[in-house]
């Protein structure tokens, strides 16, 4: 069987979900697919989905790796706020673009290191360990911005939010490249398999000689790094670091993206591409709601109902049922065999 075939069999439910949602939006809003170029930048609703989805997509990359090890990282939203604040502070303090980015990314790595040490060395449960930074992180960010929205006008930094490369908005370029790079690193090296092994059975992996401690720290650092990229983009987008609101609740969207992407919260097998599609699904729902013109009181309900439908359709029970109804009764025995070996 070809690798590509396996790949598509893995992510077709996510792609189908995305297609259905985009289809629904375009029925309600016929101008959806109009794409033009404004100010040398691609412009249109599909671009908005890709562009606005950047923070959650980036967070989902790190979150997928963490969840694959049977962990979870609740701190990513707060880490976004910290790194956004660091970048705004660095640029307004006159450190120059290179140094500022370096500081922001280092801050993300440091946050990841902290989480990783709590989880891998002290053995604190991931949900508790990362809760600490989730709560404290915004406070740290507020200390950096001194409670206000720290604004800047440095064109170099703004480029990461509203610039474009070959007409493609920079945030889109960043998350697509990051996704591709991480996928490549994880699948071309043995990291992917080792991470999955840790997620399925930590003790057995340790006994097989896998350096579980270092790997666990590494995935939390990767998550911190992704969060810092998202934080820089979010700050650059509004030309200011908003410690109170940057990345607020986005950790939950990131977890949801991973779940929609079909990676189990119990760890093990993961797919980065599917998580990225999951992030786009979430953003497509958000953008669709905004385009629909419904009163804002309905936003959360509409979103919840759509997510509920997606998750129910993806549930194991429903999959069995779908396969069952899609075959004629004589084929049932055959079907059952197929569901055992996904």
């Amino acid at each position: 069987m070809s690798g590509l075939g396996v790949f598509f069999r893995r992510i077709w439910p996510q792609l189908l979900t995305l297609a259905v949602i985009v289809g629904l939006i375009s029925v309600m809003f016929p101008g959806f697919f109009d794409i033009s170029i404004a100010n040398g930048r691609l412009y249109g609703s599909p671009i908005d989905i890709l562009n606005r989805g950047a923070p959650v997509a980036l967070l989902a990359i790190g979150m997928t790796l963490v969840i694959a090890t049977r962990g979870i990282d609740l701190s990513v939203g707060a880490v976004m706020a910290i790194c956004g604040a660091v970048s705004a502070w660095g640029i307004t303090a006159g450190y120059g673009l290179g140094a500022t980015l370096l500081m922001a990314l280092s801050a993300g790595l440091a946050c990841g290191l902290w989480n990783g040490l709590l989880v891998a060395v002290l053995g604190i449960q991931p949900i508790v360990a990362t809760l600490i930074l989730m709560v404290a992180g915004r406070g740290i960010a507020q200390l950096i911005t001194e409670g206000a929205i720290l604004t800047f006008n440095h064109e170099g930094l703004i480029f990461f939010g509203s610039g474009s490369i070959l007409s493609v908005p920079t945030p889109v370029v960043i998350w697509v490249l990051t996704g591709a790079l991480v996928t490549l690193v994880v699948r071309r090296s043995a990291l992917g398999m080792l991470i999955e092994a840790i997620g399925v059975n930590l003790r057995a992996s340790t006994l097989a000689g896998v350096n579980t401690r270092v790997l666990l720290i590494a995935v939390y650092m990767a998550s911190g790094l992704c969060a810092s990229l998202a934080g820089v983009i979010a700050a650059a987008d509004i030309r200011g670091a908003d410690a109170n609101n940057a990345g607020l609740w986005l950790e939950l969207d990131a977890i949801l993206a991973v779940v929609i992407g079909g990676t189990s919260l119990l760890g093990g097998r993961f797919s980065l591409i599917a998580s990225l599609v999951g992030a786009l699904v979430i953003q497509a729902v958000n953008t669709g709601i905004l385009l629909s013109g419904f009163p804002p009181e309905f936003n959360l309900i509409i979103k919840a109902v759509i997510i509920l439908i997606i998750l129910v359709l993806q549930s194991p029970a429903m999959r069995t049922l779908l396969v069952f109804f899609s075959r004629d009764p004589r084929g049932v025995a055959e079907t059952e065999k197929e569901t055992v070996t996904p």
């Binding site: 908005d48 987008d237 609101n245 940057a246 953008t287 905004l290």
Partner: peptide
């Protein structure tokens, strides 16, 4: 003609305005 929440934040204000412009 259109009214939507931006949660009092810059980020959401920008995102919602983008959708108003498209719509």
């Amino acid at each position: 003609i259109r009214s939507q929440t931006g949660d009092f934040t810059r980020t959401k204000g920008k995102e919602v305005m983008e959708s108003f412009l498209k719509a």
